[in-house]
Design a protein around this nucleic acid. Sequence first.
DNA 1: GTGAAAGCGCTAACAG
DNA 2: CTGTTAGCGCTTTCAC
Lengths: 345, 345
Amino acid sequence: MAGAGASARTRRSSTVSDVAALAGVSPGTVSKALNGRGQLRAETRRRVIDAAQELGFSPNLVARGLIAGRTYTVGVLTTDSFGRFTIPVMLGAEDVMGAGEMSMLLCDGRGDPLREQHYVRTLLARRVDGIIVTGRRSDPRPSLGRHLPVPVVYALAQSEDPGDVSVVHDDTQGAVLAAEHLLATGRRRIAHVTGTAHHAATQHRAAGVTAALAAAGEQLVGGRPLTGEWSERWGRDAVTELLLRGEPFDGVVAGSDQVGRGVASALREAGRRVPEDVGIVGFDNWDVMAEASRPPLTTIDPNLTDLGHTAASLLLDAIGGRSLEPGVRRSPCRLVTRRSTETVV
Amino acid sequence: MAGAGASARTRRSSTVSDVAALAGVSPGTVSKALNGRGQLRAETRRRVIDAAQELGFSPNLVARGLIAGRTYTVGVLTTDSFGRFTIPVMLGAEDVMGAGEMSMLLCDGRGDPLREQHYVRTLLARRVDGIIVTGRRSDPRPSLGRHLPVPVVYALAQSEDPGDVSVVHDDTQGAVLAAEHLLATGRRRIAHVTGTAHHAATQHRAAGVTAALAAAGEQLVGGRPLTGEWSERWGRDAVTELLLRGEPFDGVVAGSDQVGRGVASALREAGRRVPEDVGIVGFDNWDVMAEASRPPLTTIDPNLTDLGHTAASLLLDAIGGRSLEPGVRRSPCRLVTRRSTETVV
DNA sequence: GTGAAAGCGCTAACAG
DNA sequence: CTGTTAGCGCTTTCAC
């Protein structure tokens, strides 16, 4: 068992020369036969393929990479650990990479710039064909630098350097969608309960809500967003505050699904009916939150998997030699409706 | 901008020969100087290092790997996508791998055995030194096979083949911890509200709770666990059911934090005080759930990061030539106390 | 059609 | 002490 495994493990895997010997041809011929290049007699090709099969030959991609000068590998470097936001981006990227027979090398910066620099060096030493930088926050982050020998795309994490290529979801557009949906379902007095004031996402979302309301001749209840933290607790506290102020409201754009869920539960406990008296739209489409909320939350989906697709496609283009337009690309968000904004029949 | 980037990108990175030429020595000497091997005059070493520095030389690890016959890379293959459970395992693994200058190549099987087989071939063709198989569920899964040329460790996902090396957290021990904690805080009539009946985790946890109660001369309220699904909604429904039955209870071991949160909220709404009237222990220590619960949940932490450490260390050992004891290793869970089981003063 | 030879970038072994 | 040579496994001319 353990012994068997160990013995299997010590057996050196076979090479083109082994295959060549068995097929009675030269290594060069094996290469041509197996890769469908050159002019070979069908019978020779057959013999080589059979020999390869028999030996369980699997070409050494390391050796191939050495010749090709590329590795068919990209590095994925996170600013600040993996999590709920980075995963979908990576899965999206993997869809695209996998199709191109590219693999992804994973590095987690853990929010430490030194660690990050170390990883960049490692990735370059491993001769990755390109790098995707990602991270939980969309706030601009320091660039890896312009001098790198391979193309870099920032996904979700945006580079401070406008000369870099960044892809982020469009928070402003998402927030507009949220506010317009509340307006469309008949609400007029809309509040915005959101997260940490200094986050870029917070500011963009607030701008979107404000703009959408202005376009409809309305303005935010209370005149400005209620900023706090990205938690359910803050969502609940904010509702208490709103009710205390006494200013009437019939809609809330929440800065996140967690905040939205807090808002929903506080309203419920205060005897306000959702969606009859107040409509709520969350942000993130974090299914487990949005669906466990009572009622389930209508929310804005930032389409992070698509974002990953886009980032990976751009990177592949750049690796393929296409020169990319530098700057920030914003990919659109999508409205997902659930009970919290249903209109009563 | 784009142009500058592109031009930098076309510049071939320098090689040992370039450094050798600049330093006025031979390539072999460069290798020795840079790797601190062999006997060199300090001054020569200095000159080589300076030259390398000047050229921004970074050794090509692909070439090095070709010689060494290993790549200092391990493959991480997930059974069924990444998520809440696999992430901590991977972070734990990365801690260990990073220290050994090993990188991780990521593949996501997406629950498709064909896709998985494809990835295994890819990883082997890339000559990874070993493979970590992981996945969201701890139920035994088909082995990748015993014939692989590199060692494999199953982390969180357990292999069906007892000849493989698997590391999983100890659900039974965790459940014992949960039940004992409720007993220790003075509860006697304890119910178990848990998830999908046929999951291995469900069964192990139920066995643990039952055993701990038996050891204290008690048995489960209702005689057997209430199985349902891994959701808050089921936690709430189960409480309704329990209350309807009328059988008194003062403690609940929940099969997950989501279920636990559902239990907490239903009890709250039914006017039962937590922790005064009923104590609740969750499972998973999913912070966002456990902390947002009212009251916050005491829970069992499966220590997945440690599990990742262990898996990676085992794999490194195996790569280093140590032959591993096959079988399943169970790593212990830990109790994390929060308000839901606080004893009143 | 097929083989021989050179070389990707690096290191190890052996000369000198 | 340092240079030369050979070779990791593969592909790619270029002869034959």
